[in-house]
Computed example of a mutant assay.
Amino acid sequence: MKAYSYLLFFFSSLGAFNGVILALWLFVRKNKQPSDTWLAVLLLLISVRIAKSVAFYFIPTLDKSILQIGLTACCLLGPCLVVYTYTKSKSVTVNNFPSRLFICLVGIVFTIGMIYPYNENLELWQYWLYRGSSYVWFVCLIIASYLYYSRFKEVAGNWKQLLSEQTFITIVGCSLIWLAYFTASYTSYIMGAISFSVVLYLSSIILLKPPSPSSNKIDKYANNKLSKEQAEHYSILLNQLMAKDQLYIDPQLTLPRLAKRLSTSHTVLSQLLNKHYQMNFKQYVNSLRVACAKGLLLEHPNTSIDDIAEQSGFSAPSTFYNAFKQQTGLTPNKFRTLNL
């Protein structure tokens, strides 16, 4: 193998290897969100698909059973992306309807593979499933994009925030990988594998890049002229808004969104919370969610703690447990037992 081939093999397989490592980390890390599980599954599926491509590119006589594994992963890529986007946007548990539908699809694909194996049904796998999975992936990209846009419209006007948003980066990355494979007949089959390596590393750099200290400082102290009268005025409006619309129940509530509902800037709202409530945005919203949860725990003694957490606006049970114990000194179960 020439030096060029060695380099090509290294860079094309690097993404698949690191994709598996990242997926395993997402599976085992503490305080993970439900969407993290689906992102891990998505990374594993892409890694399997990429690994098959690399192996087939350098070993054209590859065993058909290995090709079947790669194409099976390819059939599930698009649907998995939709489930990830849905779970991310709705902040639901893993046992939601799309996830159950995905599990059924996994069963169907594996059943087809057992009844009609690749080495005995070349046309089915090389034409129908190979081409069909590409079109299904494309349709799923459109669905995922719609789900994302319908839920995260509030960041559409802020490109810096948009370009650092996990769901957006995942959808764009999957789109680039799909495009690389779809246009492989005009470029090279190995471009799909290389595109994954590039996308994975660029995404990691963007998501892991710490925020600029200077920009944070400017935002924190900009327009530091909130008077006592203004603070009292906005405080009354904020209390009325929260009492009437219960915005804290939305797990995706952000400081800019709340500021927009309050008809002010996020800088003014941040100053209000820091000065008038002596809390940051996260602490303020969690205090309202914990107060809501305390009422639900007593009103619905037979409702599970996880359901109470979701109804109170928490995106994950672990976040709920931590916030509740921090504010009350008790676990939700202990609080319910002592007050019933």
Rank of each mutant, 00 (worst) to 15 (best):
S13W: 08
V268F: 03
S5V: 10
V48N: 05
A156M: 13
K294C: 11
A222P: 01
N223V: 11
S150Y: 06
G19F: 02
L255V: 00
I108E: 07
R151W: 10
L297I: 07
Y186I: 06
Y6T: 12
A323Y: 00
T183W: 04
Q311M: 12
L340I: 07
L77V: 10
I249E: 07
F335A: 03
V199L: 02
Y321S: 10
Y6G: 14
P213C: 01
Y181I: 05
P256M: 02
Y116N: 06
C75R: 01
E123W: 05
Y130N: 15
Y148C: 04
I46E: 08
I112H: 04
W125A: 01
R29K: 15
I218P: 02
N18M: 12
P117L: 09
N216I: 10
L176S: 04
W159Y: 14
I206W: 07
K32D: 06
T303V: 15
G107D: 09
F281V: 00
K209W: 13
K90R: 14
L62S: 05
S235Q: 13
K260W: 03
T264G: 01
M242W: 00
L288F: 09
A193D: 02
L124W: 04
L273D: 00
W178D: 03
Q283M: 00
Y116V: 02
C104P: 03
N119V: 11
T303P: 02
N223D: 14
A3W: 14
Q271F: 01
V155S: 04
E154R: 03
I194R: 01
K64P: 10
F9M: 11
S35F: 14
I305M: 10
N119K: 13
N216Q: 13
I46A: 06
S227L: 03
S214T: 14
Y84V: 06
L129F: 11
I218M: 09
D307R: 12
T87R: 10
L237I: 05
S145M: 14
A184E: 07
F196Y: 12
E123V: 12
M279C: 00
K217E: 12
K90L: 09
C292Y: 12
L147N: 08
P301L: 03
M242N: 04
Y118Q: 04
K52Q: 13
S318F: 08
S188V: 00
S318H: 12
E165H: 15
Q278N: 14
L71I: 14
D36Q: 02
L101F: 13
S312F: 04
F110D: 07
A180C: 01
L255N: 05
P332G: 06
S212D: 15
T111S: 13
S134I: 07
F314Y: 06
T267M: 07
N121P: 01
S304Q: 04
I249P: 01
I69T: 11
Q327C: 01
L208W: 03
S318V: 09
I103G: 09
G15N: 05
Q161D: 11
K294R: 15
L7C: 13
F182G: 01
Y86M: 08
A243G: 11
S315L: 07
F314H: 02
M1I: 08
Y148W: 12
Q246F: 02
S197Y: 02
S47F: 07
F10N: 00
L226H: 02
K225V: 14
E120S: 12
S145G: 15
T111I: 10
Q230H: 07
R100H: 15
H266N: 13
T85P: 06
F152M: 12
L273Y: 00
L105G: 04
